[in-house]
Design a protein around this nucleic acid. Structure first.
Length: 150
DNA sequence: GCCAACGTTGGC
DNA sequence: GCCAACGTTGGC
């Protein structure tokens, strides 16, 4: 079983939204590296740290899991959707996603500031400069460490 | 709102 | 294939 971190802006889609919905197609990802991970590497049951980005207090706020295999992001085919891609076709879809299922909220938010303070997390991807990727793999040791702070 | 990082686009 | 311009992400 592998572990991942997925970012979401809480104004757009928060951990409470995922709790309400239960399962959510992770649409709107328009970055090839992130797409490739969803398409090739994420397996049903993998653990996901749910992270709130671009907000007042960036933090890991919950745990989710991968809930489907890869399939085409439907928003790429909808001309009215924000994520419409005119170059994408049914035969050759460009954007692939997986479903994410709510598991639980953390008993408290683990803030980015707190993660940065932890010496053993210096090589955690979230703490590194220029980290813009919205999905990335998490080492088990980092997964365990982050959750040990809860 | 600023700025650093970095991905994408398009001219050549 | 190079690289400048531009757009986006995301912390602060």
């Amino acid at each position: 079983m592998a572990y991942w971190l997925m970012k979401s802006e809480p104004d757009a889609y928060s951990i409470d939204d995922l709790k309400r919905d239960g399962t959510e197609p992770w649409d709107g990802i328009r970055n090839y590296q992130a797409r490739n991970m969803m398409r090739d590497d994420m397996k049903i049951g993998d653990g996901v740290l749910f992270y709130h980005s671009s907000c007042k207090v960036p933090a890991v706020v919950g745990i989710a899991k991968v809930a489907s295999g890869p399939y085409p992001d439907p928003t790429q085919f909808d001309p009215k959707a924000k994520y419409y891609d005119e170059k994408s076709t049914d035969e050759n879809p460009r954007w692939i996603l997986v479903d994410i299922a709510f598991e639980r909220k953390l008993s408290r938010d683990i803030t980015l500031a707190e993660l940065k303070e932890h010496p053993a997390l210096a090589d955690f991807r979230l703490n590194q400069r220029g980290n813009r990727l919205s999905i990335f793999p998490v080492d088990k040791k980092h997964w365990d460490l982050v959750l040990s702070l809860e």
